[in-house]
Design a protein around this nucleic acid. Sequence first.
DNA 1: TTGTGGGGTTGGATCGATCCAATTCTTGCG
DNA 2: CGCAAGAATTGGATCGATCCAACCCCACAA
Lengths: 349, 349
Amino acid sequence: MKRVTLSDVSRHAGVSRSTASLVLNGSPSVAPETSRRVRESMKALGYVYNRHAAMLRNPRSMTLGLVVTEVQNPYFAELAMTLEDVADRSNYAVFVGYSRDDPARQRRLLDRFVERSIDGLILLPADDTEAVEIDDLLATSGIPLVLLARHFNLGHDYVGADNVEAGRLLGEHLRAMGVRTVAMVGGPQHTSARREREEGFRAAIAGGKMSMIPADGLFGEATPGGGAEATRLLLDRGTIPDAIVAYSDIVAVGVYAELSRRGLEPGRDIAVGGFDDIAGSAHRTPPLTTVATFPTAIGEKCGELILERIRQSVDGNGGPALDTRLYTHDLVVPALRVRGSTAAWRPRR
Amino acid sequence: MKRVTLSDVSRHAGVSRSTASLVLNGSPSVAPETSRRVRESMKALGYVYNRHAAMLRNPRSMTLGLVVTEVQNPYFAELAMTLEDVADRSNYAVFVGYSRDDPARQRRLLDRFVERSIDGLILLPADDTEAVEIDDLLATSGIPLVLLARHFNLGHDYVGADNVEAGRLLGEHLRAMGVRTVAMVGGPQHTSARREREEGFRAAIAGGKMSMIPADGLFGEATPGGGAEATRLLLDRGTIPDAIVAYSDIVAVGVYAELSRRGLEPGRDIAVGGFDDIAGSAHRTPPLTTVATFPTAIGEKCGELILERIRQSVDGNGGPALDTRLYTHDLVVPALRVRGSTAAWRPRR
DNA sequence: TTGTGGGGTTGGATCGATCCAATTCTTGCG
DNA sequence: CGCAAGAATTGGATCGATCCAACCCCACAA
């Protein structure tokens, strides 16, 4: 019934507690033979390491915190899974929390994680996150932070897609296709990702013959339902654009649905574009033109970056370098995937 | 730079450490006025609770472990998110790990969680999980376990869909539609879910005029790609069945794609059915007939059950009741959703 | 022979909150 | 007035691993 402790192990192996501890941490100063004996005793007694006890003396918890808004969107799911991969490789455990775009809940999660002394935090910030709050929470606790996929200011490390470039790619493509009127639908209004995609898109079509239908009221949840709803509102306004750009592929699912419901065929009557290139997009009918944003690469880089920051905060003993240090902003280069949803479209004469 | 401790707080408030601790734990025996003062000192000094220190004396870590295979599948994503909801409500933090259907990785995750003394574990077991291994890991550590969505034997608590019933519902529907030949495609071969869905389906069509095409080799990843691949293999065999039953809605995405690629229209040339009723399914073209399996309800019940077991293991001080206790097997009742992918289909004369 | 150095090992103090038994302070009652 | 009962508070021991300075032992050089 009682837990096996390191003392039990050391007694069984005929050494001191200290030596057993050194064995655990793979110290080179312990004799191979001793190490073997201790390791055997551990197995024999069924010893399990008590990380909580260790943590009282040791600054490293080997634990990361990951807060994302949700994971129904396969794009976020891939980010989360990749980050867990990186953590797994480096023997970290991961606390996860879903903010559901609610800053209060996000705050609660962060408190809970800090209480458990995570070594580093990866945050995909909720819409309307109060930057200050996050800032001083982490400043006082000294926990390194990397922002993921969205950012609220540039005073933090950040890894995400180059959304401006992504918007530009899609804009240029549609322009080359001869699209004249276009609307952007869906997506959380105040996020950097939404803003940047639109910004890049506008830049690409600026000065041309293409015009953009104002997006007022066409924002919404990044879900199939949100996409269908926004499309409904758009088409109810009376004019039918040449093309619809969905905030993301998951939103495009709803765009397709609403078009079909009205007897419009996506890709023939209206060109449709998306962002992210999630697993299903190539398998839609018609296959969806989209801008791949490589969540696996983003997750990978984000994971490596937080591990790097943790290393620095430990051996650089958190000096004042923090203030003057240049933050890393890693923007992963997107790639256009032209498929049937735009390729088959022809301008009306 | 130094961490604020409970001693600091108590000194500041002019009480003893013990009293401050009592305040933290909301003991009724401390005077309201004292409590207020201590709480103020905490705020003033910026105290953060150190759960690791507490854990040395206190058996509860207020932390759960959740291991699922993956989360790209929105069905699993919903399970994970709902479980995190329940945990959040009860002030638990959640360790998460993705086994990717790899038993070795699953084992590694569990070790990592046990080391950090989780209070309870929720496991969506990997394909080919060694039951014994899990059993004695948890037996020696005394951590309560609830299996989720899949089970490997009945000697554990389990919450999932009633997959047999789900299969039966879809089988009866197709039978009523006049389907004569049908194939089931996709899904991980050795899981209880796959087996049970097929079992229920077969039971429903037994004795009728309907025949099932053997599924040898038609298993695979539960992804759009896996569904497309299995459908390709099936159709390459030469005969075209009246209906295809996808292991899950996410697999059905691939089935649709492969049919379209061959010029077959899902819902008209071949009826298609799925399982789970994920968010996109109602928005496909044609909308997908499926059996809803209510991941939110399952996650909810699963979360409540593990919390219940934790409560029992604490105050029932882990007596021998464990051996004779009856395990809970909670099967959530599924519901058929008839949509265009079968409703529009008509038998060839 | 004595001194030096280093590989290997050790005891004791320590991290920060909790538990327990003991203590002080009130209040009420015979 | 004395004493019991309860309310509120407290000091010290404790959980289990880590850190640190000290130590032992033996080889080797002066």
